Structure formats: C-alpha cells, structure tokens
Amino acid sequence: MKQGKFITAISEAYRIPFGTVRLFVRELNKAGLLTSGAHGVNAPDMTALDAARVTIAILGTDKPTQAGQAVETYGNLGVNRFYNQGDVPAFALNEEYCFVLEEILELFFGIQLLELVQMTSLEICREELQATMTFGHSVLNKSGGRSGSVVFDADYETHQEIHASEASRGKQTIARLKASDLTEIAMLINRENSPQTEESK
C-alpha cells in the first residue's frame, strides 16, 4: 500500500481529516520513523510498523509536530504484568521478556499474533504515560473466560517525575480507538502488500 492510499485509509478508518493524517505522516517521515524511498510507482509500500507508529502518534498527541516524540514516548511503554486484569493474552504474562507497545502493534497490523484477534480497544492516557488494550472474553479460555485488559506502562523513575510535576496534576487526556478500526487497516495493509496483489498491479 503506497503512502497516499495509506493516509486515506487511516483517515477513513479512524475518522480523522485527511489533511491531519497527512501532517502526522509528514512529521514522522521527517523524524525518520516511517518507510521512505522513491516516489511514484517505485515508492515503497507502507508496513505494519508504519501503521503502528502512526496509530501511536495519533493517540499520543493532538499536535502533528509532536508525532515523533509521541512515538518515542508511548511506543516504548512496556507491559506491566502487575496491572493485568481478567483473562489476558500470553504475551502479557511473559516473565522473561517485556514487550513494548510498538512491538505488539506491529504484530497486530502484520496479523502475526493470533492472540491479538480478540482485542476490542486501544487507549492511551497521555499524562499517566499508560496504554491499555482490552480484550474480549474468548481470547484465551474456551471454557468461558472473562474479558481482560493489558496495561503498558512507563518505568518507575519516569512515573516519579510525572507525579512530582505540578503541570501534570488534574489532567487526564485519554485517546481511544476501537480494535475494529485498527483491524480495517491491518487487513488493507496485508492485502495490498501480498505477493498476489503486487503481481496484479
């Protein structure tokens, strides 16, 4: 999927003006955070990682000029196993490796992790430096599991700095997207970038 079509798809799926998405993409390009190369028919296809980073930027800030910083800040939030609630996917229970938000979203958009299929929403709480994925009840337990949520969190030192800051007190900006909207992008990317599609272009 070329960049122009990618921007249109994000705009329609997330219900955000095309011009706004284009500004986010432009800033992420300038920061070297998106796939880039030739223009026109030789332009590279946008990837699952590109979709993950644009999604994080849109949820992490209202200002396109801060898109790069938003990706660096929120994309590196790690799973906090102690905040898990209900039934959660296996990646959230891993004691040997802490997945970060950007990694999990890249797997989601690449349709590479089956346990993400039952995700119902993704939200970022900007001031608290937390992201939350919620999941439907059938994600793990065939015998009647509960719904669950996975929290991606900043490290202890960062949280201490936040709570010591007067500027952050009382602010709770939460941005949320339905998983069905993210799934729409995932399906488009994988269909457009499949070998069969490439051969027919």
Rank of each mutant, 00 (worst) to 15 (best):
R176Y: 06
A175W: 04
F109Y: 10
R81F: 05
M133I: 02
D87C: 04
G68Q: 04
A57R: 04
S194T: 12
R22Y: 13
D62I: 08
E127R: 00
T65A: 11
T47F: 04
A179F: 02
G75S: 09
A48N: 03
P195M: 11
F91M: 09
A131G: 03
C125E: 11
T61H: 05
A13L: 05
N94P: 04
Q172M: 08
D153Y: 00
V151T: 09
N141F: 10
A92E: 07
S138Q: 13
F152L: 01
Q3C: 09
S180F: 11
V41S: 15
E96W: 15
H163K: 13
Q66N: 15
L107C: 12
L129C: 08
L113S: 05
A164S: 07
G40N: 07
I162P: 01
P17G: 06
I185P: 02
F135N: 08
S11K: 01
G78S: 15
A164M: 10
L107P: 01
V41N: 13
V150I: 03
A67V: 04
M187K: 15
E127V: 00
L101R: 10
N42C: 09
T61F: 03
L122C: 02
E96T: 14
L116R: 02
M1G: 11
L33A: 04
N94M: 03
K171I: 08
P89W: 07
E102D: 13
V117N: 13
D45S: 10
E72H: 14
G170M: 01
L122G: 04
E123G: 12
A51C: 07
F24R: 03
I7G: 04
G145Q: 05
K171G: 09
V100F: 08
D181L: 07
G32D: 00
G148P: 06
A92W: 02
P44S: 07
N141C: 06
Y74W: 03
A131Q: 01
